[in-house]
Write a protein that binds this DNA or RNA. Structure first.
Lengths: 239, 239
DNA sequence: ACAAAGGTAACTGCATACGGTTTGTTTCGT
DNA sequence: ACGAAACAAACCGTATGCAGTTACCTTTGT
């Protein structure tokens, strides 16, 4: 392959249009740049990316398959989750994320540790500066950092399919300063446990972290006022 | 909607070609009707279904996305799982399936209970008759029965993504009569716990069940002989 | 005879095109 | 003026066609 001293650079095969579009759209969805009222129409997105409908359509179908979007007869849109669906989602997260985080702590390498610490520092700074958006981004970065350290690829991708956490974080942190402080302190504790490579502590802390997020979420939505209550209004506010 | 006494029957909108093809192919993949040496080429499948390549292509991409297939530059094919990947898969199953089964036991309705019992009876009959294929089908039916009773849709679909169990069952049960008997008895115990609605017992039994399957699987592949050893040969034999 | 290089067939990925269905709007009737 | 029905537009799903790429086969040179 590599002849003489030539730099090969892996060349990482030009990503297909479908892949580019998928990655880009997913990133934007994770940033909540689309609200439940926005409709993603294939032909528009295609024009935006300078391609035809087909790769866009395939990317959208993939996002639907992963729960980021819901396909309707009239355009694709961000799904509006019912409280019951959020409860289901939290149940799965409670089952797998603590163990996954514990595994990550066990296998943590220096780079990932640095990433975690940086995210924790960012979160603290954003909290002090009352920079809501920066706080959210720091929390997302923290999550991405430990998730990237999970060696079990199937476990990591399974967790990655639960995109709801983004909404959860936004909803829980955007409004209440008290919640922001509690969440940031919890994140710092979690970070400390990671840096100590204390897998058991990480698991415990993660369990608490999810429980806290769940309580904050449902407290915001005064559970019981309507069983199938939707989260549309707040999500709109967040977007 | 429904005018006069007309029977509405939901009419269940004619499924799209993509959906039909996807469902059919997934069912066949779950039955291991394709081996790792078979290549699924879109144009062939399209001819087989009487459609064009596009819906087939989308169905294949979806199956790739769910791990049933792996897309190469030269046709789509059944992925060959390494031992490490199987270990990862078992780890996730250990995390979620016991709790999911326990939930199913809690929420079990009469129809699902009947399905479980029928599958258990079938398994016993197949065992006595030394009908390997029927035994496998009964075990798959049993799994489908309790999985269908899981109310948490996200949990159920998450479990459903791990298609490896089919291969595991095949590999573990096809060859060894002793393993077959142990597995069948474990299934009957599990079934009894389900029928008692004993959620805790179901969770425990499911934990044991998965551990047993895992041990049987790795015993068959004399772990350690090669770390990245592939499962190709046995899967061929099974298919 | 074997290896290397070039050619060819096959398959994927993307583009364009068309029909069907659903939705929103306008017009007509009461 | 309000409702219903017909019309128009938008968008999804599918078909076909074309180009690029990759693997396999053939051929040629040593």
């Amino acid at each position: 392959m590599a002849r003489r001293g030539e730099i090969v650079l892996e060349l990482a095969k030009p990503p297909s249009a479908r892949e580019r579009i998928y990655t880009e759209l997913r990133a934007r969805l994770q940033r909540c740049e689309f609200g439940p009222s926005d409709r993603l129409v294939d032909i528009d997105v295609a024009a935006r990316f300078g391609t035809s409908r087909m790769p866009v359509r395939e990317a959208l179908l993939q996002l639907v398959n992963e729960g980021y979007l819901s396909g309707t007869s009239r355009g694709f849109m961000v799904p509006v989750l019912s409280l019951a669906e959020m409860r289901d989602s939290f149940e799965v997260r409670r089952l797998i994320e603590p163990r996954a985080a514990a595994n990550a702590a066990r296998d943590l390498d220096a780079a990932a540790a640095a990433g975690l610490e940086a995210a924790a520092v960012d979160a603290r700074a954003a909290l002090e500066a009352h920079a809501d958006e920066a706080l959210i981004q720091a929390m997302i970065a923290f999550r991405a950092a430990w998730l990237g350290a999970v060696r079990n690829a199937r476990l990591a991708s399974t967790i990655g399919r639960f995109a709801d956490h983004v909404q959860t974080v936004r909803l829980a942190t955007l409004h209440d300063a008290q919640t922001q402080r509690v969440a940031t302190e919890g994140l710092e504790q979690l970070c400390a446990a990671f840096l100590r490579r204390d897998a058991l502590a990480v698991g415990d802390r993660m369990t608490m972290h999810i429980a806290t997020a769940e309580q904050a979420f449902f407290a915001l939505h005064h559970v019981g006022d309507s069983e199938s209550g939707l989260v549309a209004a707040q999500m709109q506010a967040a977007a």
